[in-house]
Each structure stands twice: as structure tokens, then as C-alpha cells.
């Protein structure tokens, strides 16, 4: 387990999602990366029923990199998030709690695609889909030997620039310098880049990105979203993207 950075990829104009994935795959293989199977990260959101006080949301996520765990993040609606990492049985528990938490099926979102290894790097090219609709591309890059982002950010940045072929900002990604609420109730910037990295950090990054993609669904005109290292959101119309995604699926099956 090492430091992971999640980056929404801006699809170049005039290309479909599948073409972009194809292009990135070719570049990665040319760099010397080895294709090592598929991956899947999914997220389902449950909302508490109104008779149980103010609305709370529970996001339940699965990551194929941690197949024995179910991650859940409870959002109390007041900006406080409580993470919980449990066994897979947690899914069955959620099914039993339908009287308290109901699932919002239409917001089930997932990112899946190919997984590559390059030295100790682990690179995943994920296409994000919500209800079979293609939403964009998420690139996950993990440097496994290192547990502190500030130590290896330059290495990750250089590798990213190497296969994306575009400059990446020198600053740490937004997730690592986020604002947190301290015990006194004040907002302060927590320099997360010096902390030991934990799997839940990856999950938090996915949730952040997924939430942004869901918001785009509400506003069909996608605009630049300041996520990750400032690479911006993905401006693709839904129809176009769906067609592109189907093409992508066919290619992946090959």
C-alpha cells in the first residue's frame, strides 16, 4: 500500500472516451508498463429516511484493490464525515437497514478499466459510468513503496507527465491540502501530504470525484471543476459519451 493520487482526465476535444483510453493505454505500454488485469471501484449512496431526524447520507464504496473490505463514509449533513472500514458483510447489514437508510439506485456510480504496473507504480485508467452513462475518465496512480505524499510527489508528477504528455501543476493535489474542522470548530488547512497514507484516503478521493461527476448530472452543461491537481472536469455531452463508452467496452473485452 502506498500513496495514491486520483486525477480526472480532460478528454481532448474531438475524441470519445474510448479513444482517449486507447490513446493512454498505448502510451503506457510504450513506456514499458505491463497490463495486469482489470479493476473496479463502485459507490452506492444511501439516504436516511426523514423520520430519523436530519438527513444523513452513507456512501458505501468497494475497491477491487482491497477485495475483503467495504468502505463506508457517513456524512452527517453538517460537513462532518465518519469513515468506517468493515468486512464485506457490511453490505448485507445495509440491506437489513432499509427502514432507516434507503438506497438511491440512480446514483450508483463506478469507475472501471485496466490496471497497469510500471516498476513499483500502479496505474489505473478508469472510465466512470453512472447508470450506464459515461461520465469521464479517472486516472489513479499509486506509488506503492512510499507512504508519504510529500516524499514522492515529484516522482508521481514526472510519471504522470510522462504518459499524459501534458504538464501537471507543481502543487500537491487539492485533496492533500484540504480544509478540516479542528476540535475547536475552526476551519484550518491540514497538510495531509506529510501524513502516513492510508487506504481510506484513496476512497475519500474517489468519493470526492464521484460527487463532482454526480453534480454534473444535475447541470448538463459541464463546466471546469476544480478537482485533483487542477486538471479540470470533463466536457463531453452525455450522448456522445455513451456511444464512446460502448466502443470502449468492446475494446476492453478484446
Amino acid at each position: 500500500m502506498g500513496v495514491t493520487v486520483l486525477l480526472p482526465y480532460q478528454i481532448p476535444e474531438g475524441k470519445t472516451g474510448a479513444q482517449a483510453i486507447d490513446y493512454l493505454t498505448k502510451r503506457l505500454l510504450a513506456l514499458g508498463a505491463i497490463h495486469t488485469g482489470q479493476f473496479l471501484v463502485d459507490c452506492e449512496t444511501y439516504i436516511s429516511t426523514p423520520q430519523h431526524g436530519p438527513a444523513k447520507t452513507v456512501h458505501v464504496l468497494h475497491d477491487s484493490e482491497y477485495p475483503a473490505s467495504t468502505f463506508s463514509i457517513l456524512d452527517n449533513g453538517a460537513g462532518k464525515q465518519i469513515p468506517l472500514v468493515a468486512d464485506n458483510l457490511f453490505d448485507l447489514l445495509m440491506l437489513k437497514m432499509t427502514t432507516v437508510y434507503t438506497s438511491k439506485k440512480q446514483t450508483k456510480i463506478e469507475s472501471k478499466g485496466a490496471r497497469f504496473e510500471y516498476g513499483d507504480f500502479l496505474i489505473k485508467l478508469g472510465s466512470v459510468t453512472m447508470q450506464e452513462n459515461f461520465k469521464g475518465i479517472l486516472i489513479e496512480i499509486e506509488y506503492r513503496p512510499c507512504v508519504v505524499l510529500s516524499f514522492c510527489w515529484e516522482m508521481i508528477r514526472e510519471t504522470l507527465q510522462g504518459f499524459l504528455g501534458m504538464p501537471i501543476a507543481k502543487e500537491y493535489p487539492a485533496y492533500f491540502s484540504q480544509q478540516i474542522m479542528n476540535p475547536m470548530g475552526q476551519q484550518q488547512i491540514h497538510p495531509k501530504q506529510n501524513d502516513l497514507y492510508e487506504p481510506i484516503d484513496t476512497i475519500n478521493q474517489y468519493l470526492e470525484c464521484f460527487t463532482n461527476y454526480r453534480k454534473q448530472n444535475v447541470l448538463p452543461v459541464a463546466s471546469s471543476v476544480g478537482v485533483g491537481a487542477g486538471a479540470g472536469g470533463v466536457a463531453v455531452t452525455t450522448q456522445n459519451a455513451t456511444a464512446g463508452m460502448q466502443g470502449g467496452n468492446q475494446r476492453m473485452r478484446m
Binding site: 514499458g32 510500471y118 516498476g119 513499483d120 507504480f121 506509488y143 513503496p145 512510499c146 516524499f151 514522492c152 515529484e154 516522482m155 514526472e158 510519471t159 510522462g162
Partner: peptide, 19 residues
């Protein structure tokens, strides 16, 4: 500073996937 320093000769951080 294994991951923090670039190579003195080529100035790069990563080569063949290694620092």
C-alpha cells in the same frame, strides 16, 4: 531522501520505473 532527490546526471526522478 530516496524518493525526494533527482538523479545528479540526468536530472530526472524516474528511470525505468525506479527513483
Amino acid at each position: 531522501k530516496l524518493f525526494l532527490e533527482a538523479c545528479k546526471r540526468c536530472g530526472k526522478f524516474v528511470s525505468n520505473g525506479l527513483p
